[in-house]
Design a protein around this nucleic acid. Structure first.
Lengths: 147, 147
DNA sequence: TTGACATCGTTGCATGTGCAATGATTAAAC
DNA sequence: GTTTAATCATTGCACATGCAACGATGTCAA
């Protein structure tokens, strides 16, 4: 007769980690599918490419710190990108533990296509949300800053 | 001499899908580790449990729609939960294609521990963000409503 | 009834993932 | 200078994942 332990009310749809996960999934899904179907690129690979488009001469460690991915994930993404001919991996001259990642010309051409796609998607989200976009931005800034 | 294709500027750290992914990862990580280390529960399992704590007599299909997970993910989470003794899977009487998921008494006891943990975490986030929490909420609401 | 089609849940398969352990290299300690 | 510790990137392993295919059941039309 003690089978029915009472449970507190809880609304998953208002739980912030859940809402963020769903929002991230929704917004990534459409773009990720385009990347995958048209270019054979996954999200981890895309993140590495974006960072290389900004700063060349980057190590796995640098990317790990900048794009919020585990180093093994970065390493495997870089290996796949190298196999696809978008990236070269060479030994760093000063510190031979480091790997120097660099876009190939073909990789640059790819990014010249991908980056406008991403920017257009960002613009589309911003247009759709209107004033709420700024709210979302300030909320995320607060959430992501310290810690 | 045409090696250097020019690339448009792009700031990954301001790209909304990326920011949302990082925010989701950060906020889920801490809680997920607690669930895993202390109770042996993963995030997909947790989502199923939360929904069962709210509404009993639920099918895999129902959960798939409510908690934003693929049906195969729900199915496997339910299988694991059954093996751990937190959930029972029985055949629905009316429609024998459906599986009726239900918390066991032990499952209810687990949730009586887990739900307050989640609520405390939610409260902590809200306290830390202050006014920005409301901004985040309204932004997410706008983003997630239609589609 | 029969047949065609839709729905539900599970599973096979290839691939991605986190985590710990490893080898290679460099830095620090003494 | 030698030993010890730290750092960088990769890899092995067990497991999770998405997706398509499947079997079982239910629905609908003729």
């Amino acid at each position: 007769m003690t089978e029915n332990v009472p449970l507190p009310d809880f609304d998953l749809s208002r739980f912030m980690p859940y809402r963020l996960a769903v929002a991230a999934q929704r917004t990534s899904e459409e773009l990720a599918r385009q990347y995958r179907d048209r270019f054979g690129i996954s999200i981890p690979e895309w993140r590495v490419l974006v960072h290389l488009a900004t700063a060349e001469d980057v190590s796995v460690r640098d990317i790990e710190a900048r794009v919020a991915m585990e180093k093994s994930k970065v390493s495997r993404a870089a290996t796949r990108l190298e196999a696809q001919g978008y990236v070269t991996k060479t030994q760093h001259q000063g510190d031979r533990r480091l790997v120097r990642l660099k876009l190939t010309p073909r990789g640059r051409e790819l990014m010249a296509e991908l980056l406008p796609l991403a920017q257009a998607y960002q613009d589309e989200i911003e247009a759709r949300l209107g004033a709420a976009f700024a709210h979302l931005e300030s909320g995320l800034t607060a959430l992501l800053q310290d810690k």
